[in-house]
């Protein structure tokens, strides 16, 4: 059994990090336990639930389905990065005002998915929102308020209708 570590170089939320980890170390664990960015949650480690969604070079990706070494050299944005970005504030504001979260465990994944979704679909209808969110699982809200929040965020994003 080989435990030899490899160097991983990642730019996360604009900061470059270099760490030595085993090749099998998952990106989700790397973010959470090597970098202390615990806003990215692990819900299934099979890519189903979406709680671990991050932006990898600007596009959503399941951080539980990537090895840190595999994406070495990439840029990663996590919920902590989104929270520091004023231009994305309407998304979190809309989740807050519409009570679109309860236990909050799935929420960072939903926010990351919404960031990309609204970039791709600046004026979505309800059906498009449902399709866009369908690969993130929430067990608390019944999705009703999440769908409302994403519609409201679309209106309030810079360049949106609101």
């Amino acid at each position: 059994m080989s435990f030899s570590k490899v160097e991983v170089r990642l730019t996360v939320n604009g900061t470059e990090y270099v760490r030595s980890v085993e090749p099998r170390y998952l990106l989700a664990d790397f973010l959470r336990h090597e970098l202390g960015l615990t806003g990215t949650h692990i819900g299934c480690e099979q890519g189903v639930c979406g709680a671990c969604t991050v932006l990898l070079d600007g596009r959503t990706a399941r951080s539980c389905l990537h090895f840190a070494v595999q994406v070495s050299g990439s840029e990663v944005t996590t919920i902590e990065g989104v929270s520091a970005d004023e231009s994305l504030k309407p998304i979190q504001d809309a989740f807050h005002h519409n009570h679109a979260l309860q236990c909050g465990y799935c929420t960072p994944g939903f926010v990351m998915t919404t960031v990309e979704f609204l970039k791709d679909n600046p004026a979505p209808d309800e059906a498009a929102i449902r399709r866009g969110l369908t690969n993130n699982v929430c067990r608390c809200t019944g999705y009703v308020n999440i769908i409302k929040a994403v519609a409201e965020a679309a209106d309030n994003m810079p360049g949106g209708e609101g």
Partner: peptide, 9 residues
């Protein structure tokens, strides 16, 4: 094929 996040990768 899965969700956007899956197809991105």
């Amino acid at each position: 094929l899965g969700g956007t996040a899956h197809r991105n990768r």
